[in-house]
Design a protein around this nucleic acid. Structure first.
Lengths: 117, 117
DNA sequence: AAAAGTGGTAACCCAAAAGTAACTTATGCC
DNA sequence: GGCATAAGTTACTTTTGGGTTACCACTTTT
């Protein structure tokens, strides 16, 4: 069964973008890291409803896609910091615009709607 | 069990944005519609691997979120056209930037990677 | 009378994503 | 010796998203 492709060539890049950041947690994580490096445990606290397992997973994928950098200090107990890479930084303005767009376009949304459960 | 919220207030809008367009098909559909209104059947042809059910679903959600407009002509056989709304149009430049970002940041990706299966 | 054309819906299925809870590792501290 | 600590991992369950197939409604065409 031959595989098929989307016709619009630009769609390709959009698909890829969504593969990279189009899920429940990644854009938020990137947003959080825009304030500077954060330790694993700190992110866990800032995102009170994410599970350890999923956070690990998301960070690993972001690291693989080179949007963030994982810095592991060789200490006991462990200390690991995550920060945005160059690639990650260049994504920030776009996320910011998206954020503004949402605020402008859906002024009625409230905190209520942004439950992360 | 009390629900909790993300701390960063900006995250709220990002979460909402991702709820609206952060899935497999919606950004592509929006992209397709940037060329002008399209009939249901035409979209099905342009996205050879989407199923009728899912397309219906996605279009309904995009319509509910007022990113697109559904125009149903009272004819037999039915004719329904979908086109971008004002809100949808204002999203386009951002999608375009995201598209450029991906192309710049991951120059190595090829069509190969954009299989939609 | 039967088939074709169009935009659906309903019932069912599967794989992937996300969530939960317990366990691990290596050290310093009491 | 026993506990705390941080950043995980493992095994398991639940939820969700997307997919398949069949069917419908109404008219025109054959």
């Amino acid at each position: 069964m031959p595989r098929k492709y989307v016709e619009n060539p630009n769609a390709c890049t959009i698909v890829h973008a969504m593969n990279i950041i189009g899920n429940k947690w990644k854009p938020i994580i990137i947003y959080l890291l825009s304030g500077g490096p954060l330790r694993f445990g700190k992110i866990l606290v800032l995102l009170p409803t994410i599970s350890k397992k999923v956070l690990t997973q998301q960070l690993k994928e972001l690291d693989n896609d080179q949007l963030i950098i994982r810095k592991s200090y060789n200490e006991i107990p462990p200390r690991v910091e995550y920060e945005l890479s160059e690639k990650g930084l260049t994504l920030l303005p776009i996320l910011r615009e998206l954020s503004l767009w949402t605020a402008d376009t859906f002024p009625e949304i409230e905190f209520e709607k942004c439950r992360i459960e």
